[in-house]
């Protein structure tokens, strides 16, 4: 057994170098075992070091001791990692290394596909200078319907099957009530998107679910026109779907906008040629929009002679189903890990 003279700190450095070069050249298990005895064993060099502390002058002893301890820890760690590596690569030097064995399974998670789509939509609007706002899931009839120009006994209320908490309180059926809440808080200009969860009293099937998520948008300022609505939503469609996509606008009806329209985009799967997803039409319905109704501006305390605005809304689930070509909406809420892992 070699007896290094390790009475000085420089010698400690020499020993360190020697240890690591010995470990490097210990390529089989026999060599590793003799390394262990030589340095880490009961009579090994590192133990000897610590035992020799008493010979060190008192003023240097503490520092020397700390360094020696550190070296021992370092050696132990390097030795065990070397042993593990050996085990993995095979015992004999001659056995070939197998890189095809799997890497150790560090956990990897995922972000829900609905969150991903939501955030993609959000980021596009944020880049156009829109802010993000929120409102409660449980809403009063006033914010969910009355303030949005749904008269109390109008058939328009049948458009959205509603969960009731009390005759005056509902689970919001759309994110539009947040429009009113924002207008109450802030005078124009208002440029805002309002993402959130909405509830509809619908039986659960592959096509519909009793909750889903919307992104609502609102832009109110002087002289906001239908041309602005078209421009903004066309640009959104081109950023989100395809930079060459086209949109088609159909008149529709929502009590809170006038005029109200539905916006179809050219099917991004078949480029408008017709496929099963777009039911051979070449178009996909993705957005409802319109010019904010003067009664809604009034509900929000905004003078409709001075200001005009547009609003829009889209369903995140619908867009996610289309974009990922998923055929069953329930997959989003079952949260099967094998499904989630794909996103």
């Amino acid at each position: 057994m070699a007896r290094e003279d390790a009475s000085t700190l420089e010698n400690l450095d020499t020993l360190r170098k020697k240890i690591f070069s010995d470990l490097e050249s210990a390529t089989d298990s026999a060599a590793l075992e003799s390394f262990r005895i030589k340095y880490l064993g009961k009579k090994g060099a590192l133990r000897a070091l610590l035992k020799g502390l008493k010979n060190i002058p008192a003023e240097r002893r503490k520092e020397y001791g700390a360094r020696a301890n550190q070296l021992r820890a370092e050696t132990e760690q390097a030795f065990s990692s070397r042993t593990r590596q050996k085990k993995a690569r095979g015992d004999q030097q001659s056995s070939p290394f197998d890189p095809s064995l799997p890497g150790y399974p560090f956990p990897h998670g995922s972000i829900h596909p609905l969150t991903k789509i939501r955030n993609e939509i959000r980021d596009i609007f944020i880049s156009m200078g829109f802010d993000v706002a929120y409102g409660p899931d449980v809403e009063s009839d006033f914010y969910n319907f009355a303030a949005l120009n749904f008269p109390p006994h109008h058939p328009a209320r049948d458009m959205q099957d509603t969960f009731l908490v009390s005759p005056e309180v509902v689970l919001r059926t759309h994110t539009s009530p947040v429009q009113i809440r924002i207008m109450e808080e802030q005078q124009p200009p208002i440029r805002c998107i309002m993402p959130g969860r909405v509830y509809r009293h619908e039986e659960i099937s592959s096509r519909s679910y009793c909750i889903f998520h919307q992104v609502e948008g609102l832009y109110v300022d002087r002289d906001v026109s239908f041309a602005d609505l078209k421009g903004t939503l066309l640009w959104f469609a081109r950023r989100f779907f395809d930079e060459k996509t086209h949109i088609k606008i159909r008149p529709s009806f929502f009590p809170f906008t006038e005029p109200s329209v539905e916006i179809d985009i050219e099917c991004f799967l078949c480029k408008g040629a017709g496929c099963s997803v777009c039911k051979q039409s070449g178009w996909l319905e993705i957005l409802g929009a319109g010019m904010v109704h003067p009664n809604v501006l009034a509900s929000g305390g905004i003078d409709s002679e001075h200001y005009t605005g547009f609003a829009f809304g889209m369903g995140i689930e619908r867009i996610a189903l289309l974009k990922y070509t998923i055929d069953d909406i329930r997959l989003f809420f079952e949260n099967d890990i094998r499904f989630l892992r794909q996103f």
């Binding site: 956990p107 990897h108 998670g109 995922s110 969860r197 679910y209 009793c210 909750i211 809420f333």
Partner: peptide, 17 residues
């Protein structure tokens, strides 16, 4: 979201009822 996903967790969305 990104921290937990990086630590190995999957985000879920449940119906809340």
């Amino acid at each position: 979201n990104s921290t937990l996903a990086a630590m190995g967790f999957h985000e879920i969305i449940t119906d809340g009822m």
